[in-house]
């Protein structure tokens, strides 16, 4: 078990380095993308600054709180696409029969697929989140550890949801659009103060679109540390990831390796 885990960590590392060197092939574009992303995020900071200047707190959220969820979201989405950058291509890989290459290799298909690409632009998101964190909390080792943990758990929530959405492709044809919508929803729900959502929306953000677990729940733990809550978060996180695995593997049995195209007359 431990050996297996080590093997996969090594695989992730190898992919990561290879991707980095592929990105370095286009150095200028890599740097522009990273800066572009960071700039992109800076504009949102500006947005909140204006809003809070005009209003004061939004519900129970102060500027600091919004910055915290913003930082977690930014870094989590960044980490998701740096480590598991190929998740967003799953639908296309299925439709075009390109899963074949991964199925011919002696590794877990899903892990092999999602790790094999890394998004260069996402470095901007990852770094930006940490910069905002330091701006809000200063150097606080305890909080930094929690923050990093939430970035990882957030990245896993995002990746799990995308895997599930893309796995619909096995059954109903290209579901890229659905997956992209899921991604947009997750982003948008996780960066606005939790208090603006009520009723059934609140239910949604803690279930089918777990934005609440990506940022709001972690924020509560950051505000007031309770080991039980942390444990709960990690358990829920694992449950989502395992569900994603099961759904992907169920779908994989229906994989047609691009034959769909030739049989559709």
């Amino acid at each position: 078990m431990l050996m297996e885990a080590r093997k996969y960590l090594r695989l992730i590392k190898d992919y990561f380095l290879l991707n980095l060197s592929a990105a370095m092939e286009y150095r200028a574009s890599f740097i522009i993308q990273v800066l572009g992303m960071a700039l992109n995020n800076a504009f949102f900071l500006f947005f909140w600054w204006i809003v809070f200047n005009n209003t004061g707190n939004i519900g129970n959220y102060s500027f600091r709180h919004v910055m915290t969820i913003w930082a977690i979201a930014s870094s989590a989405f960044g980490a998701a696409f740096i480590l598991f950058g190929n998740t967003r291509n799953i639908s296309n890989l299925i439709v075009q029969g390109e899963l074949d290459v991964y199925l011919l290799q002696p590794k877990n298909v899903l892990i092999n697929v999602i790790c094999s690409r890394s998004s260069a632009a996402s470095w901007g998101d990852l770094l930006y989140g940490f910069i905002v964190f330091f701006a809000v909390y200063g150097f606080n080792p305890g909080k930094l550890m929690l923050f990093t943990l939430f970035v990882v758990s957030g990245a896993l929530f995002i990746t799990s949801m995308l895997i599930i959405a893309h796995s619909f492709t096995f059954r109903m044809g290209n579901s890229s659009n659905i997956a992209n919508a899921v991604l947009e929803f997750l982003i948008s729900f996780s960066i606005y103060p939790e208090d603006i959502f009520k009723g059934y929306i609140k239910f949604i953000i803690y279930s089918v679109l777990p934005a609440g677990f990506i940022t709001f729940f972690p924020l509560r733990i950051m505000n007031e540390f309770k080991p039980v809550m942390l444990l709960a978060l990690l358990l829920i996180n694992t449950a989502y990831f395992i569900t994603a695995f099961i759904i992907f593997y169920r779908g994989l049995k229906k994989y047609e390796s691009g034959n769909l195209i030739t049989t559709r007359m």
């Binding site: 190898d14 290879l18 029969g97 290459v101 011919l104 092999n112």
Partner: peptide, 20 residues
């Protein structure tokens, strides 16, 4: 369907395949 990486030299892909 290629198992080699489009943007990288084959040598790099071979090393990756080696570790896979």
């Amino acid at each position: 369907k290629s198992q080699l990486w489009f943007h990288l030299p084959p040598g790099d892909s071979f090393k990756l395949l080696g570790s896979i």
